[in-house]
Amino acid sequence: MPLNEEEAVLLGAAWQRLAGGGPEAAAVGAELLDRWNEPHRRYHTLLHLWETLRAVDVLQGEAADADGVRYAVWFHDAVYEGRPGRDEEESAELAARLLELVGEEPARIGEVVRLVGVTATHRPEEWDADGKVVSDADLSVLAGPTDEYLAYTAAIRAEYRHIPDRVFRAGRSRVLRSLLDGPHVFHTAFGRAHWEARARVNMLAELDRLASSAPLDLPPP
């Protein structure tokens, strides 16, 4: 489901509050919005950006630098070609280049680059308050109602429609088991209290579907 008109306006306003209203900030914001709106995306879209930023709003009380986390969210999937690890690396490089144009301080830029890297593994260190927030915000979709979770899994499958079903099932199952095998899916106090149980139910149910022979939902191109 795409952003509605009101959400699109609010998303642009959120960038302006974060980066300012200067021409450089406007140009960087326009580039980011174009990237998030690329036609090959099915899940990693403007809607994912919007919902992840809203999750940061919920978790911001646990962040050391909530605006730094917001910058990391804007950049974390700005490069998305379905190449785990490499996409995050190139997104971090993009953040370093474009935030300098916006006029952010080197220390803030370095921290945003580091936080984008956290989204490649979703394994922040215990001391890393901002890493916990950016990781949990990115994974908050896992705790959605069943219909929203099924729409999410169908969109992920669509982004990998070029991958044979057998290969996709195996790869997706590894990702889910990696998250479930940790002591927690979520790292913030709020995430553990409010999202953990629902997310585990959703992921275990998805693993059951992946293990079956039933065709996976795949929307039209």
Rank of each mutant, 00 (worst) to 15 (best):
V113Y: 14
V113F: 15
L115I: 12
G117T: 15
G117A: 09
T119M: 07
T119P: 03
A120L: 11
A120Q: 07
T121Q: 04
T121Y: 07
T121S: 00
H122F: 13
P124G: 11
P124W: 10
E125P: 02
E126I: 02
E126F: 04
W127M: 01
A129M: 04
D130M: 05
D130C: 02
G131T: 06
G131Q: 02
K132H: 15
K132F: 11
V133E: 14
V133F: 13
V134K: 10
S135E: 06
S135N: 04
S135G: 10
D136Y: 13
D138V: 08
L139D: 05
L142H: 07
A143H: 05
A143Q: 01
G144H: 10
G144I: 00
P145V: 06
T146N: 02
T146S: 10
D147N: 03
D147V: 11
D147E: 14
Y149G: 01
L150H: 11
L150Y: 11
L150R: 15
A151I: 07
A151F: 01
Y152H: 10
Y152R: 12
T153Q: 10
A154E: 12
A155S: 15
R157V: 08
R157P: 03
R157Q: 14
A158N: 08
Y160R: 11
Y160V: 00
Y160H: 14
R161C: 14
H162D: 06
H162T: 10
P164W: 09
P164D: 13
P164A: 00
P164G: 00
R166I: 13
R166L: 14
V167M: 04
V167A: 01
V167C: 00
F168R: 11
F168M: 07
R169G: 01
R169C: 04
A170Y: 00
R172G: 15
R172C: 13
S173P: 01
S173R: 12
R174A: 12
R174P: 01
R174Q: 03
R174F: 09
V175E: 06
L176C: 11
L176D: 05
L176H: 08
R177C: 04
R177N: 02
S178N: 12
S178C: 01
L179P: 04
L180T: 02
D181Q: 04
